[in-house]
């Protein structure tokens, strides 16, 4: 809302200027907030126990930089695993096959029901249960054989743990996306002779994915920082490497600041990318979701009584 600046003209022709409103509340709260922020910043900057030179020194330390790289790798790979598996789980969850539906339900329940930290440590220590991983054709000697300790490094444990965990959460997002696609699309697909699988593959999923692309950005941003949990399995990520340095030289606060600066930078870049994604797909998403707000959704509910099976009875 723009305030009026044009003066009033009296019947006699004289001008009455509009005075500028002073927003006292804004000035007072703004000043208080600034003072508080300055005081907090000063507490850190002026702290004799905090060595800022060391922060600058370690910011571009080789071990920190390689940690940043590993953190990015783990975040990207784990998100990819989570998204792919999440889509599969969501489709299973909406399947008409009760076995697939229960399997998906169990997976989601299990991975959301146990702490991520427990899962990470579990994967890392898989060798205690299964010293060897064997993949072979049953009743033959044909197959591949791994030493679990070699396969299950901190990196793979982190990637698996974070990826499998994200899948459980992401499945619910995908499910919502699939259910947001207009039921008429399914009717049309079936009427044209598509099987439920083809309908999902060619008609519903492509539209559902456009709807859920913006939230995937969120998942990735959150994942960037969740990777710091990998520190418990020594995944050589940013947090692990920073902790290894401060355990040796005791500059705990300095290295936490270094790590935070990198995390914030990565988050800022990811947020910028997400905004671009949203701009690209957001408008599409609004159009794809079934029309007409609440009434549309009610119509959807009424429609769900009909068979979605593509099979009559």
């Amino acid at each position: 809302m723009t305030a009026r600046t044009a003066p009033f003209i009296e019947p006699g022709g004289s001008e009455v200027p509009v005075t500028r409103t002073i927003h006292w509340g804004r000035w007072i709260s703004g000043t208080v907030a600034l003072l508080l922020a300055a005081w907090l910043a000063w507490l850190f900057i002026d702290n004799p126990r905090l060595d800022w030179a060391k922060v600058g020194e370690y910011l571009f330390n080789g071990k920190i930089l390689s940690g940043v790289w590993v953190t990015l790798e783990i975040a990207v790979l784990a998100t990819a695993i989570g998204l792919a598996l999440g889509v599969v789980l969501a489709v299973m969850r909406l399947s008409h096959n009760p076995v697939l539906r229960s399997l998906s339900w169990f997976y989601i329940w299990f991975f959301r029901g146990t702490p991520l930290l427990v899962q990470l440590i579990f994967w890392y220590n898989l060798a205690f249960l299964f010293p060897h991983l064997i993949l072979k054709i049953p009743f033959t000697q044909v197959g591949v054989f791994w030493d679990t300790n070699q396969v299950m490094t901190g990196f793979t444990a982190a990637m698996l743990g974070l990826g499998l965990n994200l899948a459980a959460y992401f499945a619910e997002t995908v499910r919502a996306g699939i259910q947001a696609v207009d039921e008429g699309q399914t009717d049309a697909a079936y009427a044209l002779g598509m099987t439920p699988m083809k309908r999902m593959r060619y008609i519903v999923l492509p539209q559902a994915l456009r709807i859920i692309i913006p939230p995937t950005g969120n998942e990735f941003i959150s994942m960037l920082k969740t990777t710091s949990l990998v520190y418990v399995v020594a995944g050589n990520d940013l947090m692990t490497n920073a902790s290894q340095i401060y355990k040796a030289n005791n500059l705990i606060m300095e290295l936490l600041i270094v790590a935070s600066i990198w995390y914030m930078l990565m988050t800022a870049i990811a947020t910028w990318l997400q905004t671009k994604l949203e701009r690209r797909f957001g408008r599409d998403a609004v159009r794809l979701v079934r029309g007409g707000g609440l009434t549309g959704r009610l119509r959807g509910l009424a429609g769900s009584r009909t068979i979605d099976q593509g099979a009559g009875a």
Binding site: A188, L192, G193, L288
Partner: peptide
């Protein structure tokens, strides 16, 4: 014996249907 999804799909290839709300594939 009830049809499976494939038999339904096969049957529907012979029948065209036009809906009140068009239901064009939005993507």
């Amino acid at each position: 014996k009830a049809w499976n999804a494939k038999q339904f799909a096969q049957f529907r290839t012979g029948i065209g249907m036009v809906f009140q709300r068009f239901n064009l594939f939005a993507h």
